[in-house]
Write a protein that binds this DNA or RNA. Structure first.
Lengths: 299, 299
DNA sequence: AGAAAGCGATGAATTTTTTGCATCGCTTTG
DNA sequence: CAAAGCGATGCAAAAAATTCATCGCTTTCT
């Protein structure tokens, strides 16, 4: 929308850290950009950027302003969505930040299901760890977040929660696969692959291990759950994942819960930014997710 | 702010019901206005006005858009307030919708107190009955509402509540003035002046009277509490008001509570629009009001 | 019934605003 | 100590918004 062009420029300048660079990014001259921003600052009644030797940086007023811009943009998108809805068109866009566990099975299925009903709706899916996901909401970069064990932040409003036990993932012929559930000490005694520290699964493991004066000491430590899932096929060891990221039928791989005596379930949380009115499409998708999760096997 | 000019024009057109009239109001040609709105509608992706023979009217999309504009405007004002705050200037504007009872003593005192600390802050005070006050918040026309016995609506968020008993107002030499408190039946047996039906005081009176199969039958029925307060000096009868609108020392006038056996206290409520972040000045003023009310004689 | 007035829309001309170019003064970097 | 990069600014060119003069239409007054 053209009336927000100046804000868009301001955002570009903030990102580039320099007016000339931003100008190039936005396909205009440094001169034009400088003036636009000067004019705006005059009208706004306060400087938006600190002028440093070598570039510019948002000052606190600018931060506030940028936040206003993002909120405005988001609200406008919501209005446009509702208007399209009025016209019976049903289009829109849903952006979602999620943990890796949602990628292989859960989200593809959910998105596909939503899109059969509303083919006009497009999606963007961003993988973010539990800290990043919350910032993502706060900056209006994503409408929804679906994360395991988020670090509760002020701006996070919970839409739905389900418990998820940590599961052990291994090759079907692994000795531990015979058991129904697996004790934590057995996990720690067996060679294992574990996600790195920023992930909720690892956080729960570390916490539980510390309780029994043990330590998680992975053979391979990785940021990729996909790697974990595939690695257990190549070496006789175990990995960890939550059930929503697993399928019973995946070839050669089985998973068993870690005994709840050793490890209490974590929370998989669907949330949005506190107080925000979501665009129609996102709100509906959130409702679908909440409904699906409600009946989800706690497994 | 210039980037919202088109919205301002749209609002003017919606108000005037005609592009040419709105154009005159805003000091430009009908032609220019028509074009601006056409351009905007094209960019927005939907018509904003219904074209009728003899003028235009907002369509549902337009209503939504106008609401977005008002929300944006309000948020921008908040940002500007915060920025001014950053600069140590402390200016801003507080708009408040209130019941009549706040006008004679309470609000003047509160506003004056606030302005001694922050002389840069300006106020607008609108008198609204309890139904109107809530609409006023929803359309961003006022930041705060201070009303007696509001008809709870969805968008109303309570900041603070205090109970207020209904008091009888009369000349100092009225026979009933000798009592500490006054029974409802004595009120109804005496000639009385009462506020009209839309007011909370009357609502409570009607409700209580009905309980004892009596009726409020005023000699004078009025929308003005000021008239009530002054009328009791001219004829030997009684009026009603809540204590916040009264002073013990007003010349020739006394007030006594209606017995709480007959009439339970009503609620005086300070509120804002649900979920909205108020501008700094309004938020602070609301805090001052809440603090004052907290220690207010329930009397 | 017919004329007048009011409405929104549009083409062409004009005014205003925005942008680009050239260049300044300044600071950092190699 | 020169080169490169930064934001700011005067002036000319380009783009956008506004006005003026009309059109076609509907309602209202005579």
């Amino acid at each position: 929308m053209r009336h927000l062009y100046t804000f868009k420029l301001i955002e570009a300048v903030a990102r580039a850290g320099s007016m000339r660079k931003a100008a190039e990014d936005m396909n205009l001259t440094g001169s034009a950009l400088t003036r636009r921003i000067q004019r705006f600052e005059q009208e706004f009644g306060a400087k938006v950027f600190e002028r440093l030797p070598g570039g510019v940086r948002l000052n606190p007023a600018g931060e506030l302003l940028l936040h206003h811009y993002r909120a405005t943009l988001s609200d406008l998108a919501r209005v446009q969505g509702q208007v399209a809805d009025l016209a019976g068109v049903r289009r829109g866009h849903v952006s979602i930040a999620c943990s890796q566990g949602m990628l292989p099975y859960f989200l593809p299925e959910q998105i596909a299901r939503y899109r059969t009903e509303h083919p006009g709706v497009t999606f963007s899916v961003n993988v973010r760890d539990r800290t990043e996901a919350e910032q993502e909401l706060a900056s209006y970069a994503s409408d929804l977040a679906l994360v395991f064990e988020p670090v509760y932040l002020v701006d996070f409003e919970v839409i739905h929660v389900i418990p998820q036990e940590v599961h052990v993932v291994m090759a079907a012929d692994h000795p531990l696969a015979k058991k129904k559930e697996i004790r934590l000490r057995d996990c720690l005694d067996t060679p294992h692959v574990a996600p790195s520290a920023q992930y909720g699964v690892r956080y729960l493991l570390d916490f539980a291990a510390r309780r029994s004066s043990r330590r998680v000491s992975p053979v391979v430590e990785t940021e990729s759950f996909e790697l974990i899932r595939h690695y257990v096929l190549h070496e006789k060891l175990i990995g960890f994942q939550i059930p929503i990221g697993l399928k019973s039928s995946e070839a050669g791989i089985v998973h068993r819960p870690v005994s709840s005596r050793d490890l209490s379930p974590g929370s998989l949380i669907l949330g949005q930014m506190r107080g925000r009115t979501l665009p129609v499409a996102s709100a509906r998708f959130a409702m679908q997710l909440a409904n699906t999760l409600k009946d989800y096997p706690a497994a």
